[in-house]
Design a protein around this nucleic acid. Structure first.
Lengths: 137, 137
DNA sequence: CAGTATCCCGCTTGATACTG
DNA sequence: CAGTATCAAGCGGGATACTG
């Protein structure tokens, strides 16, 4: 059942060109391509979290960026925000249906990355060795 | 065989946190999360292309950004650059094995986007209606 | 606790001009 | 044709301070 040595390239419609329909790729990337969105999704994949829990779980995120990221994901309907009125206030974030479906995509991203990381590292090392002091990087 | 109404969230290891291993998600996004890389990959998915063909196919890309994008993808071993010495010069770009495997990921991105675009559009409209003149957007 | 409000910096991108 | 070089702009993101 192996497809080794056959053409396994996915059939992708051309897009981004003038006459072609928008394939939607830029759409997703505009949504999750930023620094923090995926990390929030990953964290929420294992269950609802409070604001402070997210901030502790996601290393390096600032209060400002966590707020902005959560707002954007909420606006797109990928997570829901529920306020439990109390003192101090308590706010919980939960992935919605669409948000949970995103976790599969993120899983695919992570899998691909882990599978190809060594190869890419080697390729980089080779390139950098062959092109000393080049402008790229 | 349907899994409807069950938990279909992908099991994702927490990552980005302190004690946790790097799940690699940021890695992929740093590689293809930029404005032009995926579009180049999509275009090359249907076969080798010359520099000028890519520039015509990808609407809006500048000479500078196309060069930078191609160099980065080449450095990571996702495409190969072959120069046919002639006047005028002729340079062809081709996806490598790892590069072709990327097309599957990109396909998944496009599929997810197309499937959820209407829902997300509705969610946005609803949010914007409920939060008039908010800072987000 | 869970934000909002400012200020500011750097990196990515864009525009333009030049070349083997 | 396929680049490189240079300059300028815009936006994402960080640091800090303040509040219901």
């Amino acid at each position: 059942m192996s497809l080794t040595h056959t053409e396994v390239t996915a059939e992708l419609e051309p897009c981004g060109a003038e006459g072609h329909p928008d394939c939607g790729i830029r759409d997703v990337l505009d949504r999750i391509g930023d620094t923090w969105s995926v990390l929030v999704v990953v964290e929420l994949a294992s269950g609802p979290r409070r604001f402070s829990e997210l901030q502790r779980a996601i290393d390096g995120v600032s209060q400002r960026m966590l707020t902005l990221t959560l707002r954007r994901l909420e606006r797109d309907g990928l997570l829901s925000r529920s306020v439990h009125p109390s003192i101090p206030p308590q706010v919980t974030y939960t992935l919605t249906g669409p948000g949970r479906s995103l976790t599969h995509l993120v899983k695919a991203l992570a899998d691909w990355s882990l599978a190809h990381r060594p190869l890419i590292a080697d390729a980089r090392a080779a390139y950098d060795a062959a092109h000393p002091a080049h402008t790229i990087r």
